[in-house]
């Protein structure tokens, strides 16, 4: 720019533009995939990546967690956390499934109910999720609870509600129209569309500007005239709604609603966001990073299974990678503050 000549700020102080943050995360993803490719040839004599159906399965498996991760990324950007997403997923799955049962099924949750339009179970699932999210948001803002505690409470409560709803009985015999939501590559499509929507929302809308501002400096955001309380409620409600959506898809895919669904998915979602470069100190994070972070988790799970690695060892390695991601974040911030 033409301004450069008349300033005294050293060139090095400028924001580095060469590579977006995602590039390094993408490199990690590619690196991990290549390691599995190499190990695949040496240990099993076959290709890891050269199998299109495996790649689709990877994305299919992560799209549920991915939806949760898109929600929790936004919450973490505001310096919050959402531990309830896995449980809210289950509760929404139960409610949606109960309204999507075949009308002639004798042991339906609501036996008198006729065939409902597909919109009803979907709307109900989304609504349950959004309400749980609004509840989180209210506890955090008006209730002044730390987000960790508020969403921990919701995590336990929503799981309890999901179990209480049918006293632990699974809800099966769902209509074909409903189960079609989870059929084929639909979950992947929904995940990618949702991710794209929130990528744009965070980057190009007022909603996004306010989200980053609140995470960067809540007090300054408040003084700048941003209604922080209302905005935080909105962010938590959106995260809850996305958990609801994930619940609908999971029930449709499994052709049943089960109270134990999405167990500890909230941790995978948080891990995906953090691996993707979202800072737990708030103000930093992008949906593209989160999507890549989700894929990293998916590739690892798939790769370890492909190599026949013990499931327990999988968890150990996953844990180490999460720690490495957070350490990288700390290192980045330390370097920035010098």
């Amino acid at each position: 720019m033409s301004m450069v000549a008349d300033t005294s700020v050293p060139v090095s102080a400028r924001r580095p533009r060469k590579l977006p943050v995602e590039a390094s995360i993408l490199a990690v993803l590619v690196g991990i995939a290549l390691i599995f490719e190499l190990l695949g040839w040496t240990l099993r004599g076959q290709s890891f990546l050269g199998n299109p159906s495996r790649l689709l399965i990877i994305i299919l498996q992560v799209s549920i967690v991915g939806l949760l991760a898109v929600g929790v990324t936004q919450v973490i950007i505001t310096t919050g956390i959402d531990l309830s997403s896995g449980s809210v997923l289950a509760l929404s799955a139960m409610v949606a499934a109960s309204l999507a049962q075949e009308s002639d099924y004798a042991r339906a949750v609501y036996p008198g109910l006729g065939d409902l339009p597909i919109l009803i179970p979907v709307a109900a699932g989304l609504l349950v999720g959004a309400l749980a999210g609004l509840c989180n948001g209210t506890l955090v803002t008006l209730g002044r609870l730390p987000p960790f505690i508020a969403t921990l409470g919701m995590m336990v409560t929503a799981r309890g509600l999901a179990r209480y709803y049918t006293h632990g009985q699974p809800i099966s015999m769902l209509t074909d129209k409903f189960t079609a939501i989870g059929g084929g590559a639909n979950p992947v499509l929904i995940f990618l569309v949702v991710a794209a929507i929130f990528h744009v929302a965070l980057r190009y809308t007022r909603y996004g500007k306010y989200t980053y501002a609140i995470g960067g400096n809540m007090q300054a955001a408040r003084v700048s005239g941003i209604n922080v309380t209302r905005h935080l409620m909105l962010v938590y409600t959106i995260a809850g709604g996305l958990s609801g959506l994930a619940g609908i898809i999971m029930a449709a895919r499994a052709t049943s609603g089960q109270a134990g669904m999405g167990m500890s998915y909230e941790l995978d979602a948080i891990a995906a966001a953090v691996i993707g470069g979202t800072s737990l100190s708030g103000g930093i994070g992008r949906i593209t990073g989160t999507v890549i972070g989700t894929l990293i988790l998916g590739v690892m799970t798939s790769g370890f299974t492909f190599l026949g690695v013990d499931a327990y060892i999988q968890d150990i390695v996953k844990g180490l990678i999460i720690i490495a991601a957070v350490m990288a974040d700390q290192f980045r911030r330390k370097r920035r503050s010098i």
Partner: peptide
Amino acid sequence: ASGLFLML
């Protein structure tokens, strides 16, 4: 404390 967004 209440003015700048240092990471922006």
